[in-house]
Amino acid sequence: MTAPRTVVGDTVVRGQAAAERVRSAVAAVRDPEIRVLTIEELGILRDVSAEDDGRVVVTITPTFLGCPAMDVIRADVAAAARDAGCAEVEIVTVLSPPWTTDWLSDAARAKLAAAGIAPPVRRDDPGGRTLPLLMPALRAPRCPRCGSAATAEIARAGSTACKALWRCDACRQPFDHVKDH
């Protein structure tokens, strides 16, 4: 898939300095569906680079192929770049390597938990129960509210494609869990 190209703005800054400015502006764009995280923390933002012809190229990758938030993210990235005074920004969408929840940083995981969303379970988490699922490597998350491991899945698919709905049997709080992917 060739990326939709977005060219915006009036000529203000160019080159490496522009790339740096755009990078910090774009890195702060929030994911429209998981608003506690920026697209950088989620691993959606892959690269910001300055081309020889003066363009700045922002490279992003979708969490899921059909993720409808991508169009919004493109618009927000374009707007952020424009606000950062960038002359020409090209937004490129890449699919390879495919996005994985392994790209979530520890800081991002902590932010998710603080927002009441259980982050994906790390494969090396000794506390995570392995579920008797047909799919390998699916692990039960801990309750983001009280930390209990006594949790049960309510629905494999949640309100957004990347989340599942779980419930804590200890404090009875329903919670979202970002699926391992």
């Binding site: 899921f64 309510i154 698919a157």
Partner: peptide
């Protein structure tokens, strides 16, 4: 309802493949 959500999710995945 779980199935409404799951099937919508699957439809969205397939549509994403189709668009690409």
């Amino acid at each position: 309802f779980e199935e409404d959500v799951a099937l919508a999710n699957i439809a969205l995945d397939l549509l994403g493949q189709a668009r690409a």
